[in-house]
Nucleic acid binder design. Structure first.
Lengths: 144, 144
DNA sequence: GCATTCGCCACAAACACGGTTACATTTACC
DNA sequence: GGTAAATGTAACCGTGTTTGTGGCGAATGC
């Protein structure tokens, strides 16, 4: 949903969109969108403006925002689940497992993020609209 | 926890372990371990035996089981969360986003799995016990 | 036959997440 | 300055997932 939101902003060509407009496209609730925009704003990806004619817009060019940035901004939990219970310290495996697991999980997480970093918002928008690749940054009316 | 369980089995050098023994090391409930062993068994990673002196043991050598196998066996949800609500079909972004997102998420997921595949159970056990690397397949008494 | 162990079921508790309502705050416009 | 529009945030609920727990049947070795 965070990706969808930022794609809408990238697709709007610099026009700002309100949470209601976004929520009608993502088929969800304006408050949910605002929560999301708040997280994206804290990560420095969007700027928001209160009041009439307010809304959100991208803080950077679509070429400068990657899916890794979106992932880091919105994801709260890790992709690999660690054991919640701490193992029995008398177990020779469990006692030292956490440290090794941390290193391996960090590598895997890094690989995931690197792959996400290969796609920018601009490239994503272009992939959405292959028929008109050069119009990807032009202002455009949104349905709803 | 799946990793911990298989590490215990790999560390036991072919001896079979009961769900109670494993649960006392992972500090959880025997039923939870049995649920886990059932999933690992369906994935062909372990074999289980009922009755006295039963339990679970590895179905392959520790060198032949990677963390990717464990991940695929135990993980039920995808690492990247897709939007649960289907977007408004009138939205030009949302209408085509799912397909592109699928491709990107599949690549990222693949990168994660490839990284996990680089570590086998045998390598993990060796990393746990750097002082005696050649004893990693010998039978060994477990605490608990 | 009996003790042991897995496999499976049902249920409760904890937790996360999205949806919803409500309200305070800011801001443009008249 | 007042009003409408829009964000920011808190509170609450329903849903779904996961773990913990007990119980019971089935298989199995002694």
């Amino acid at each position: 949903m965070g990706v969808h939101t930022l794609l809408l902003l990238a697709h709007s060509g610099g026009e700002s969109l309100t949470s209601s407009e976004i929520s009608s496209s993502t088929n969800t609730n304006p408050v949910v969108v605002r929560r999301l925009l708040c997280a994206l704003g804290k990560a420095g990806l969007v700027t928001t403006q209160k009041g009439p004619h307010g809304g959100a817009r991208l803080a950077h060019l679509p070429t400068e925002i990657t899916l890794r940035d979106v992932y880091r901004a919105v994801e709260t939990t890790e992709p690999l689940n660690r054991p919640r219970a701490i193992p029995n310290p008398k177990c020779p495996v469990g006692a030292r497992m956490a440290e090794v697991l941390n290193r391996i999980f960090a590598s895997a997480h890094h690989a995931l993020e690197d792959e996400l970093a290969r796609t920018s918002l601009a490239a994503f928008v272009q992939a959405l609209d292959p028929a008109e690749p050069e119009r990807k940054r032009k202002p455009r009316k949104l349905a709803a």
